[in-house]
Design a protein around this nucleic acid. Structure first.
Length: 489
RNA sequence: GCCCCCAUCGUCUAGUGGCCUAGGACUCAGGAUUUUCAUUCCUGCAACAGGGGUUCGAGUCCCCUUGGGGGUACCA
């Protein structure tokens, strides 16, 4: 089938009813990558045809999250474009026009059935154990003129599509191949609701046509609606776009990914300290691969090699362990200046203001550099850097127990003496002092290093000790060692 | 109930009939480097859901079973 429709125009079409789920984010990402990879257009359309569920905050968050991920749209909401409006609620006249045409062409009809009757029909079908085939087409033969008469008399109706009573509807899914439906299992779907708003089915078909959508890439929960859409395109006399149904993203256990099981939305992961680069990279690889063994990739690299052919039809579990690893990778790749900004932003929340006075950029940058390989989250940076500015209030129990042992008091005394004599506190100088103590007093470096590390930083983990000491500064280092001496034996 | 989709290590995946004694990544376990931790590097554990076909040959094609998921709305 045609894979090279030109020009490429794809969309992300969320309904503003909730937060941006990672599954939705991946759908948006694949559309974005596909557009960018082919010099096409990526547009954003807001599917707000359900007035009961519309949520202003959700919409605002959606835009924010998409932009945070770097998935800027070329046309659409808040952006404008030739083929708008991009809010379905502003396109009611367009849908009304098409519905009128369908009615006149005898491709659709007014249905006056009450919700109660519909419920009864459904209940009877379920009870019978037979196939539940939906609406029983009770109003299918009401003529347009009769319907108009009844409407004038004040009756309310919905409009339904006249689905063929037999035959099959076939479409080609770009990542799954041919999919066939017997028309007998399809019912006469509602296309215009009682409130005169279109249903999703009508609105998306009409919009995808007028907005010249070349490919519809959406979640695979839409597969079973697709034959209805194909029938709608037929009835309207339009050629359908190419369909690509994306597999779902599952939770680690295999079930549905939801906030109940932890993070599920883009906002959740941002709050946790994940980088947008990480999420983009990770999501891209959940159901797609570049065809070689690359894994850590930038958005630009993804664009460069993205193709629909390499999307897998299999649903995938969201493995947060790998996401964590990947975040570490992207942190290591990211610019020091970005980490520096983050550190400056977070530090005041952890460290008293006066401890930060007069601290140079160079020092902060140095701290960033020694911590960079030790963090997996941006949010870990400041807490891990705190002891460079304030003395530890307590000592990690395990580390202290291991480090403060027999002889450490004596060792600390030797170190204090050696450090007090230094004129410079550069890393190499400090290291030299330690080595000299080792030699003259016949000690192993490890015997000196561990108690001093815990005394100065309060923890057993961290950057190279000499670098650490240099960063903390001579006077403060000596003071901290003295403060810890009572705990040593 | 009916319809549709899916099925390779625990997880993400490569694999489009012979190159597969199934490759990579995460995790996990060892090891190297290092003053600690982390990074980095090396090694190892670990999979074609089951059964039938087709074929000289099947992870790869077909069918069935099983398992998972979705749909069956005047929600998207």
């Amino acid at each position: 089938m045609n894979t090279s429709k030109n020009p490429i125009r794809v969309r992300f079409a969320p309904s503003p009813t909730g937060y941006l789920h990672v599954g939705g984010a991946r759908t948006a990402l694949y559309n974005y990558l596909f557009a960018k990879a082919n010099g096409g257009t990526f547009y954003l359309r807001v599917e707000d045809t359900d007035r009961k569920r519309f949520n202003e905050d959700a919409l605002r968050d959606l835009f924010r999250d998409l932009r945070w991920l770097g998935l800027d749209w070329d046309e659409g909401a808040e952006q404008g474009g030739e083929l708008g409006p991009y809010y379905q609620s502003e396109r009611l006249n367009i849908y009304a026009e098409e519905v009128k045409r369908l009615l006149e062409d005898d491709k659709a009809y007014h249905c006056f059935c009450s919700e109660e009757r519909l419920a009864e029909v459904r209940a009877a079908q379920e009870k019978s154990g037979q196939a539940v085939t939906g609406y029983d087409r009770h109003c299918r033969n009401i003529s347009l003129s009769e319907a108009q008469q009844r409407l004038e008399n004040g009756e309310k109706s919905v409009v339904r599509l006249k689905v063929p009573l037999d035959g099959t509807t076939v479409f080609h899914d770009q990542i799954r191949g041919e999919i066939v439906y017997q028309n007998t299992v399809l019912d006469d779907l509602v296309i215009l609701k009682r409130d005169k708003f279109p249903t999703y089915h009508l609105a998306s078909v009409v919009d995808d046509y007028y907005m010249q959508t070349s490919h519809v890439m959406r979640g695979d929960e839409w597969i079973s609606s697709t034959p209805k859409h194909v029938l709608l395109y037929d009835a309207l006399g339009w050629e359908a776009p190419i369909f690509c149904h994306l597999p779902v993203i599952l939770a680690a256990g295999g079930g549905k990914l939801s906030k109940r099981h932890g993070a599920a939305s883009v906002g959740d992961f941002r709050d946790l300290g994940y980088l947008p680069e990480t999420l983009v990279n990770f999501l891209a690889l959940l159901g797609w691969n570049p065809g070689d063994e690359r894994e850590v990739m930038s958005k630009e690299e993804l664009i460069e090699c993205f193709s629909i052919d390499r999307i897998s039809p299999t649903s995938a579990a969201f493995d947060e362990k790998k996401l964590l690893w990947m975040n570490g990778q992207h942190i290591r790749l990211s610019d020091d200046s970005l980490l520096l900004e983050k550190l400056k932003e977070d530090l005041p929340e952890i460290v008293p203001e006066e401890s930060l006075e007069g601290v140079s950029n160079a020092k902060l940058l140095h701290i960033v550099q020694v911590l960079k390989s030790r963090i997996n989250f941006l949010n870990d940076l400041a807490p891990m850097a705190a002891y460079f500015f304030v003395a530890p209030q307590e000592y990690d129990e395990k580390a202290a127990k291991r480090a403060f042992r027999e002889g450490s008091l004596e060792v600390s005394e030797l170190i204090i003496n050696a450090l007090e004599e230094l004129d410079s506190f550069e890393t190499e100088v400090v290291e030299g002092a330690f080595k000299k103590v080792c030699e003259t007093h016949n000690r192993k470096l490890g015997q000196l290093v561990h108690p001093i590390r815990v005394a100065v930083s309060g923890t057993g983990v961290g950057p190279g000790l000499f670098e650490l000491l240099s960063l903390v500064g001579q006077k403060e280092v000596i003071a901290r060692i003295k403060k810890a001496q009572p705990l040593m034996q």
